[in-house]
Nucleic acid binder design. Structure first.
Lengths: 277, 277
DNA sequence: TAAGTTATTAACAATATGTTAAAAAGAGGT
DNA sequence: ACCTCTTTTTAACATATTGTTAATAACTTA
């Protein structure tokens, strides 16, 4: 091996292809809440989580659904910049909550060649979205966790239903971390079923000790609406007084009211950023 | 663009170099606890966190310290397998706690070319380690967090002291996530100062809601020793009765005692894996 | 005006955590 | 043998947080 006497001298000679190379992509789990309102006069609308999927137009996995994503250009952009670019394209939004989730890298996750993918979670308020996105569609999420660590996820966009089943296997030396094994997945490209499960669990965990939920809420909301969002993410009913105490210092009451719902009107609240929790 | 009629046909034709490629590495923050015992007869030993660093033998960053790591071979291994390989080389241990931390990818983080690095945290019990590792050394960690989100980290291996200063900048749309800006770092290669801070914060956060601490403990330990480890990771004093209640259902008392410490002997405890917490 | 529905909060119960203080017991020194 | 030092261990109480029940409020529609 040639001897160098300085960092500069070494770099002048360096051949970037010295190590084997690979391609990278980003995949983004874009999450929002939707309200499926029933048609009766009392609008007991039911909040659901919904995620954005795109239809693949090319091989591989042609005509399957997948998470919005794209290849990283190693010359010019970081993974996060690439993710923001994809988000801008798919939602026309910028300045939204974006968090690196996990880097998925099973050797055969892409049938073409070795492609490592760093996934992100983005949280958006659906009200701010532009109307239609080419080849993309929002799917409501139903999440069924069985006792034996088997999870069924059902996605529905009104026309089409996608089902997948994943088994969670406890990792060695841990009590709280899992490997995901796909049991059944016929409609989603790549390993995006695992990305979805991973992202949904991340959101669920973070709900209790962060303020992320407000990234999915409009500026003004009732406490009932906020509670419904908590309930759909945590997948369980909460009791009103307990819930209100817990979020009390995260929101502030405004003068506005929401009326016309067929029952006592409620105050509209707003997110209040706190110094220290 | 050529038209294909099946996935197989497409793949037969696929050129892996179609997209720009890059190299990937893994970096591992190997964390343990050490006991610096003072020489007085009452062995009021002080626990510290310690991390493993390696001295770089080649360019770039020749002769600087860095985290153990290595290039990924995209043909044959996953990131985690690569991390396990590095761990085996540096500590001769396998079957240890290993968790993917974050994928660092600043465009200029490696002066040679674009190298994206996925970092891992490994937790080990130092007692299980082989004696000496070539070119590697354990550094005790001192962590000083200033009020204004500036963190000083001091690393010491007995011969050498490494100091670094990092500023934490709150990320947009969040109340709990930070970008790290290096203020001062003269001795650590690449962006490993950020990896270290990121990993230490991850451990600190997970301490309260997981059982990770026991990966750094020997099989038998006193509650005083366990409490010291909590204190050094959380960087604050805990009150005995409160601490004991909190960890009560994670440990089980054994018949063994630890004596000869110059004070009342203490029972030795053992980690007890729990059904449900 | 009555019925139905959700909003809001008071009041109490149960649990969890913070704090003080006291008793226990080995090592070392005299 | 006894005293001192030290840490271990636990009891007892104080405080804070969260769970639960139930009562009242206020709108919409019939």
């Amino acid at each position: 091996m040639k001897e160098y006497s300085s960092e500069e001298e070494f770099l002048k000679d360096y051949n970037p292809k010295e190590f084997e190379q690979l391609s990278m992509t980003v995949d983004i789990l874009v999450v929002s809440v939707s309200s499926k309102d029933s048609s009766n006069y009392r609008k007991t609308d039911k909040k659901m989580m919904s995620i954005l999927l795109a239809k693949r137009e090319d091989y591989p996995f042609k005509d399957k659904w997948c998470l919005p994503g794209g290849f990283l250009d190693p010359k010019t952009e970081t993974l996060e910049e690439c993710a923001k670019k994809v988000l801008k394209r798919e939602t026309n939004l910028s300045n939204i909550y974006l968090e690196q989730l996990y880097t998925f890298d099973a050797i055969d996750r892409d049938p073409r060649t070795r492609v490592v993918s760093t996934s992100f979670v983005a949280l958006v308020d659906k009200n701010k979205l532009k109307q239609h996105v080419e080849n993309a569609s929002w799917f409501d999420v139903t999440f069924i966790e069985e006792k034996n660590n088997v999870v069924d996820i059902v996605l529905d966009n009104g026309n089409e239903t996608i089902k997948m089943t994943i088994k969670k296997v406890l990792r060695e030396k841990t009590t709280d971390r899992y490997d995901y094994k796909t049991v059944k997945n016929d409609s989603l490209a790549f390993d995006h079923d695992k990305v979805i499960l991973s992202g949904l669990e991340r959101i669920k965990n973070k709900l209790n000790y962060t303020d992320i939920v407000f990234n999915m809420m409009p500026e003004y909301f009732t406490l009932g609406e906020l509670q419904q969002v908590y309930e759909v993410i945590l997948n369980k009913k909460l009791l009103d007084p307990a819930f209100r105490r817990i979020i009390a210092n995260k929101v502030e009451k405004t003068e506005k009211m929401k009326t016309g719902e067929g029952h006592r009107p409620s105050y509209l609240f707003r997110y209040k950023k706190n110094e220290r929790d």
